[in-house]
Design a protein around this nucleic acid. Structure first.
Lengths: 296, 296
DNA sequence: AGAAATATCTGACTATAGTCAGAATACTGT
DNA sequence: ACAGTATTCTGACTATAGTCAGATATTTCT
């Protein structure tokens, strides 16, 4: 079977299976959309903006679904303190009981699937499921050029600074390593964000120099590591550097970021002597870009 | 992650992905249900009974969907020659063009998923998909005791006789190896049918003797082999024989049925001297049943 | 301060999906 | 021959899902 027909055959089989699992919700007095909403609100509650984005709902429709759940006494909505346009939905205690019930139902449905198999097959199935899931998620990541001052960029940079602040032996003070947003905006550079299902899960900045490009602020969200996002960010940066006919990409990194160093090496970067005096750097890397014949 | 939470996480991810693929149908003027119907009718046409069963549609709903497709000029229905209650839906040439278009759209959607991955990941993904699919299908097979004269039983037996008629070196004449339906019905025996999505895909008969049980008419549909159906049929037969406190199961087989002999051996059967004069048999097998202490 | 953007809600609407009862017709087993 | 069963169709109905155009309140930008 070709790859494409395997994917289509898989989709047919899995749709049927998932449909059967979803049918289990139908013995509740609630619609599937309302159940999904309960799951998405979760025990800790969620802002309506987030619910709308991650379930892809029309704002009117979401509003109506929430009114329905409120009438059932499962959900409460209240304004957020920071921004009183934003409202947050939380489960009432009755709602938490109901979510538990739905979770148990889903567990049972998954268990029924597994119970029909022999123990050795169960392991094979769940391992193959993990692989499929990881690769589908990986294929769903989309990398786009974004303004470095956008909210998503701020979110990434804040997360990045928070993480290295914890990991660097000396902590991290952004003031000592300043970078200006305009450096990462055309014409002086680029800022890439990796998106997964509407959430930013990684970023990378590129600053264009006269002969080489500098990579800065490269980060992948911890829960999304191992999906090849770092690799894809580097590939895109390389494309951009090549478009500008630069002959090399350079970056510096801190010694505690072992996994980043491995990534750079596996993507063709070589360690070079220090080319700047970045205070937090211990290693400097460079990748010569092949199809370039120096600066145009 | 536990097996159960892996299954649930897989379902979430895959639902999202499949939903995205299905969204591709939405740029047609047709509903998803109508598209599924076109796929199911296929280039060769299908009886309405089959469409209703395999898509799980209400007969009124199906009727209306078909009227819609007829109005669009994509489908024709005509009475069957054998039974004029049964009607058959076939695609018009315009319908075939439309089905081709849908197929190409689906191929493109599957291709987009694969194209987001590196070639090595594509192979890993499709192999894992094949594994997941095989095991889900395998878990969806249901084995039930059925009357040996039911239409499904006839379908299995006809397929079985047709297959061995082709494979046996001497052909096969059912008259020389007679078995009566009552032998496979309680209290004298059992007839098992393996069902997959409403279609019979395998069978096995058990004839209860005074001290041992005889297995007869064991068959698995060619397109469903490798799913462990034979193994599960044998397990169920063993349960039944144990319920009747029999000490052994016996069967005979033809030398060309190599895969069957491998199955028997792997399930604990041992070759024994001929215990009957079945004309088409070359090998005789027996499995002693453990928890039994002879006939009650 | 004023303009533009954002978040939510409501009312009015449409499309899709599905159910159910009954009618017409044809087949099957005895 | 005839009672019982199966197939399909129609009309009448409901539920679910979703869309769209404002209205309102709030925040952000300039």
């Amino acid at each position: 079977m070709s790859n494409i027909s395997q994917v289509r055959s898989f989709n047919r089989t899995v749709t049927r299976q998932v449909g059967a699992l979803e049918a289990h919700f139908l013995d509740t007095p609630r619609s599937l959309a309302a159940c999904r909403l309960l799951f998405e609100i979760g025990p800790d509650g969620q802002d309506l903006v987030h619910l709308r984005a991650s379930l892809g709902l029309d704002s009117g429709y979401l509003s109506r679904l929430l009114r329905g759940l409120e009438k059932e006494g499962l959900v409460r909505t209240k304004g957020s303190s920071r921004d009183s346009r934003i409202r947050r939905a939380t489960l009432t205690s009755k709602g938490r009981v109901e979510l538990d019930r739905l979770n148990r139902k889903s567990d049972t449905a998954a268990e029924n699937l597994l119970n029909a198999l022999r123990p050795s097959q169960r392991t094979i199935l769940t391992e193959a499921m993990a692989t499929v899931e990881r690769l589908i998620i990986s294929a769903s990541v989309e990398i786009r050029v974004e303004p470095p001052a956008s909210p998503a960029a701020h979110y990434c940079l804040d997360s990045y600074f928070a993480e290295i602040g914890e990991r660097f032996e000396s902590g991290f003070n952004p003031g000592l390593s300043p970078t200006h947003a305009p450096d990462f905006q055309p014409p002086r550079g680029y800022f890439l964000i990796a998106w997964l299902y509407g959430d930013p899960v990684g970023c990378a900045g590129l600053r264009l120099g006269p002969t080489f490009a500098e990579i800065k602020r490269m980060w992948v969200a911890p829960q999304s590591r191992g999906l090849g996002i770092g690799r894809r960010l580097l590939d895109r940066l390389e494309d951009l550097a090549l478009q500008h006919r630069l002959s090399a990409m350079r970056l510096e990194t801190n010694r505690v970021l072992i996994e980043a160093q491995n990534l750079y090496r596996s993507q063709g970067f070589r360690e070079v002597p220090a080319f700047n005096d970045e205070p937090y750097a211990h290693f400097w890397f460079e990748k010569r870009l092949k199809s370039s014949k120096g600066k145009l």
